[in-house]
Simulated scan of single mutants.
Amino acid sequence: MRWVLAAFFAAAGIAHLRIPETLLLITPAWVPFAREVIIATGVFEIAASIALLSRTRLRWWAGVALALYALCVWPANVKHAMEGIEMPLIGNSWWYHAPRLALQPMIIWACLFCAGATDWPWRGTRSAR
């Protein structure tokens, strides 16, 4: 699961660096310095993805930080869905938006689980990772 999450966040980080203008479309207006935030979060996602794969304490920090980050980008996902913003490769379908919004809590949980910050619902077993 850590490898899947790391790949997912690394790909998102690369997208943040390669196409920040596209991601500006879904960034809420209240985000200050939106382009710079998109670039910074791209660098963060790549670095945290690498740290999530480590066997050091960085894994815990990366997982917790990625969980918080996933929570913080939820407003952009809501804006994307509610305002019907067309984006290349993603489009504007509720076949994308509904699962994306519904699975956000699972992504947050997966980040925490892979970091070892929670073992719910498998209390006491560590082999699930």
Rank of each mutant, 00 (worst) to 15 (best):
W61L: 14
A51E: 00
L5V: 04
L68Y: 07
L53W: 05
I39S: 01
R126C: 07
V73F: 07
A11H: 02
M106R: 10
A70N: 10
A51R: 05
Y69S: 01
I39P: 00
T125H: 12
A15M: 13
L53S: 12
E83K: 08
P88Y: 04
A15R: 06
W60A: 08
T56F: 02
A117T: 09
A51I: 06
T22A: 13
I90K: 05
R129W: 09
F33W: 12
A102V: 14
H97D: 04
L101D: 10
L112Y: 09
E83M: 13
P121C: 12
E86V: 10
V78E: 14
A34V: 11
A62K: 01
T22H: 08
R59L: 03
L89D: 04
A62E: 02
M106F: 15
R129M: 13
W95C: 00
L23R: 03
W60V: 13
L53T: 05
L52D: 01
L23W: 10
W3A: 15
A76L: 08
A11S: 12
L24M: 15
A51Q: 03
F8M: 14
I19E: 09
A11W: 09
V64N: 04
T41F: 04
P88H: 05
W74G: 05
A12W: 08
R100D: 12
A70Q: 07
I85D: 03
I107E: 02
I107S: 00
N77R: 05
A65H: 01
A7M: 14
R126Y: 11
P99H: 04
A76F: 11
R126G: 08
A102G: 12
L24A: 11
T125I: 06
A65W: 04
